[in-house]
Amino acid sequence: MGPELDFEKPIFELQKKISELKTFMDEKGIDLSDELNHLQERLKDLEKETYGSMTPWERVRVARKLNRPTTLDYLPLLFTDFVECHGDRLYGDDPAIVAGIAKFHGRPVTVIGEQRGRDTKENIMRNYGMPHPEGYRKALRLMQQAEKFRRPIITFIDTKGAFPGKAAEERGQSEAIARNLFEMSWLSVPVICVVIGEGASGGALAIGVGNQILMLENSWYSVISPEGAAALLWKDAGKAEVAAKTMKITGSDLKKLGIIDKLIPEVLGGAHHDPGKQAEIIDQALIDSLKELSPLSAEQIRQQRLTKYRAIGDYETVQGNQSDQKGNNRDNKMR
């Protein structure tokens, strides 16, 4: 199941032991099935125990596994008739974002996803899933096309961030991200965003302004990566593990904070253990979300999204002689 992480080591060791025992039984013709069953039971327990109580940092590391399913892995499992559309019509085509049209259970949709590589070669081609402005502009072009043809938009978020590079700055990385937030907020077709791996900062949000935000159990989404947070806050990137917890970046954290709508469970051990099964779980979540949004008119779809983002924030108005109080989230909860 790909490169093991340290917290998974006991599981891998036990798996090895089991397979050795099997080989031994076969070779020697000795029946040790009692022993084998015992070990297999233990393995099940161990997996449940290990994967059932992962720390935020462990989830971050699962989210980064090279063999974790990406946008392109989920595409054929969730959609039919996919037609990829390249280019922003302004500068170029960004392989770090894949976009196109497809059918979802027969229904036309527009699909946009950030795409990292599954090996080094692919990662270089995909710029490690870190988009340039032309990627975000391609996404916007496809979203506006979806608006024209009244197609729901499904986006897959999986990025370490918008690319921090010279060319990206020259071509207006900031403007490209800002423009997407601006335009996405007013789309009148349903937008469903699924965080499938990493969701770092503006680079993730730029395709993430949706009517519903869904998140896989072992993905993370925040204003900055744990390493970045640790470096900025404590001048020590080595404290990423602490930052992963403090910054509240996992799906269950974001569900509690009211930022996401649905936490999508993963197959035991993470999506990479069974991409097919994982796709089925995502499929059902998408069916549900589309069903929930389908009674809404175009105007209601827009208003639902605007209202959702309008309400995000944690603040209060304290007593004072100069206040201009118009009411807010927490007027009753004075400090």
Binding site: L181, G202, L205, L233, K248, I249, R305, Y309, I312, G313
Partner: peptide, 17 residues
């Protein structure tokens, strides 16, 4: 702002909207 994590990120969408 780092200390408000994802809520800070969402202010980008809120102000843009």
């Amino acid at each position: 702002r780092m200390q408000e994590g994802v809520l800070s990120l969402m202010q980008m969408a809120k102000t843009s909207a």
